[in-house]
Design a protein around this nucleic acid. Structure first.
Ligand code: ZN
Ligand code: ZN
Ligand code: ZN
Ligand code: ZN
Lengths: 127, 127
DNA sequence: AATTTAAATGTTATAATATAACACTATGTA
DNA sequence: TACATAGTGTTATATTATAACATTTAAATT
């Protein structure tokens, strides 16, 4: 449990209470009243928060979401479900999935140190 | 087997013969001598090529790679290995992996219509 | 406590990635 | 031919992300 710096805490709190993934410039807009004025201040905090696993980047959306999986200390194995209509994103926490992927070896016997998986479909509400 | 338009064919050929994923503006630079002058011309061709599964986007790299998997007509189930040192990208073609992921259901019983998986590690050469 | 080191901050400028809007052209099909 | 659909060309602009540099804060080491 790492203690966050001022900017990191402000930005984490915002993302954490957002019901949906947030984009960097939406974050910037929201924290300007707290004195964070420049994109770089946002991106630096985001980089650190991703590094320590407090948030994850949804690559297909260029957006950031708080880790919903308390056991996910380091972001080396991430999986998300994304609704293609309402854009709701949920972090998937499935022991069997993570076991399967963590142990996955390709034809060369290459073992990977990290993965990111994004599933797309329609959420309950949108079906 | 869809026939490609002029711009689509030019851009596909370039990506297909590239040993590594290509970024949109690198593509633009390379096809300017063939009369494709604007980013939008590139992005439109890329969109179509992705849609029909001739190429895939490597989301974590904002780069495009030709489909290396002849059976992958429609890009609904993609998996890649990415070397974090040399940035070599390989499309993974594993029947068991695709079976596992295609049948994966989350806790809500939600079934997905599409997924993208990116593995990170070190390739043979870089270890 | 003083020194040193690493991490974080503030700021300006700019690079890289991607789309909007509109006019026009080619192609297929009824 | 008339109509619909897909593709093109062009200019402008939006969005996402990093470079470079000066300064400050926090943490570790002596
Ligand atoms: Zn997580
Ligand atoms: Zn939905
Ligand atoms: Zn493929
Ligand atoms: Zn490598």
């Amino acid at each position: 449990m790492q203690t966050l710096s001022k900017n990191q805490q402000i930005i984490f709190d915002l993302i954490d209470k957002s019901p949906e993934p947030m984009k960097a410039y939406a974050i910037l807009f929201n924290v300007q009243k707290k004195g964070i004025k420049a994109p770089l201040q946002v991106y630096r905090a985001l980089d650190k928060l991703v590094e320590i696993g407090k948030i994850h980047k949804i690559e297909s959306r260029n957006a950031f979401i708080a880790c919903q999986n308390s056991s996910c200390q380091v972001s080396k194995a991430t999986a998300f479900s994304i609704c293609e209509i309402c854009e709701k994103v949920t972090e998937i926490s499935s022991a069997s999935l993570s076991k399967y992927l963590t142990n996955f070896k390709d034809k060369d016997g290459m073992k990977y140190s990290k993965y990111n998986l994004e599933f797309f479909g329609l959420c309950k509400k949108c079906r």
